[in-house]
Design a protein around this nucleic acid. Structure first.
Lengths: 221, 221
DNA sequence: ATGAAACCTGACCAAACGGTCAAATTGAGC
DNA sequence: GCTCAATTTGACCGTTTGGTCAGGTTTCAT
């Protein structure tokens, strides 16, 4: 038991983590207004008053949740730059975004809610970080087009298509599951969806698959 | 002034319409929980008590709004069947869905909110009407694939891609406008986006454009 | 051991909200 | 003009919610 330095601060970190995790789930499922600090506290296993000791206001807690999500989103976004080849870069980026939707659906839902409501909390992020990120990637796509490595497409439209299609598997998962006889997508079904998304978009912008990565097109059931 | 039969019932219809219109806007912008009956009544220009004379509960009003939206959505969905040719059918369907996002963005937002929150109000519609509609269209796409008129793609993935991409221009319009220097998309910009979406998806599923409908790819600004 | 700081919590409060109600107003049929 | 049902409205109510607070408990450096 050589814990001396860590017990106190570790406990604090753990409580904060539990609150943020609970908050993400509750905000995702009920939206900002629909979520109550009581629900979040209960899910985190602490009294409501204690939650307000760690996060002064509901809005501050919400802001922290959204910022965390934005950071994950940004990390994934950097996978765009891992390769110079458009086929590899787009395949990697789309695959990564699909996997995030699969493994981190609540974050995407919170983000969708925030944008739907005109981004009252994270407007500054949209106008700075996101705007810069988008501008540089548009430049990359335009260069690829100029080099004839893909068809001439409007880069914004392509980016929005990638964002919307991949995030659909998080934001609209309830609709997808309902249309899957009420059952969650199996790993196989999701893999088929992911591969089809990659293939349709790449083929859609005139990038011919070179590698023989076996992409199945079979029906999803 | 030969209005006698109509004044009374016409006034009622007009009040109901004003309430539903206001409710759609407020529910779209604030979500179900974020919207208050007071806000809706104010926007409709009537006292809150009068709103409750026309719609007994907030939930009943919300349900009516969602049902109206679903009917518009279904009408558009039928444009899928207008042509037997996959190129024409998909072009028509995608174009129609894009135009609905442009002209009826609030409805799409309400729908997105409802799905995001696990469809507490319209789950029965998802399990009946939407499930049936989807099944028949999947059959059509599978037939096209079987006839070699398009590449073998998973029909569900294709439908979800069309839904998500087109509705993105309504649900995420705030993000799109922020990335457009805070300005709304001009008609030209939107037309470019619409044409690019059609072209990328059709090309993505292996449908080569026949008609010479001039599709421009130019940058959006 | 001890004092101070950090942490925890039951009880409480003011504001906001969905919904009610009784009284007033309107308008169509006679 | 009169009647009565439909409509309108300000005032009101019970509940929920975000947030506060006083007082208790734990942790840790000395």
């Amino acid at each position: 038991m050589d814990r001396k330095v860590s017990t106190r601060s570790a406990a604090r970190a753990e409580t904060e983590r539990a609150i943020l995790s609970a908050a993400e789930a509750v905000f995702a499922e009920h939206g900002y207004r629909g979520a109550t600090t009581g629900m979040i506290a209960e899910r985190a296993g602490i009294p409501k008053a204690n939650l307000h000791y760690y996060f002064a206001t509901k809005e501050a807690l919400y802001r922290q949740v959204v910022e965390n999500i934005f950071m994950i989103w940004l990390d994934a976004a950097n996978s765009f730059d891992d390769c110079e080849d458009p086929e590899e870069a787009l395949t990697h980026y789309i695959t990564t975004k699909m996997d995030i939707s699969r493994q981190h659906p609540m974050g995407s839902k919170v983000w969708a809610n925030e944008i739907l409501h005109r981004a009252p909390v994270i407007q500054d992020y949209l106008e700075t970080t996101l705007r810069e990120w988008t501008a540089t990637r548009i430049a990359i796509i335009e260069r690829w087009v100029g080099e004839g490595r893909m068809d001439p497409v409007d880069p914004r439209t392509l980016l929005y298509m990638i964002w919307s299609t991949t995030q659909h598997y998080a934001d609209f998962i309830h609709q997808i599951e309902t249309l899957n006889d009420g059952k969650p997508l199996s790993d196989d079904q999701f893999a088929i969806a992911r591969d089809n998304v990659v293939r349709i978009i790449l083929s859609g912008v005139g990038i011919r698959a070179r590698a023989a990565s076996s992409v199945k097109a079979g029906a999803a059931r």
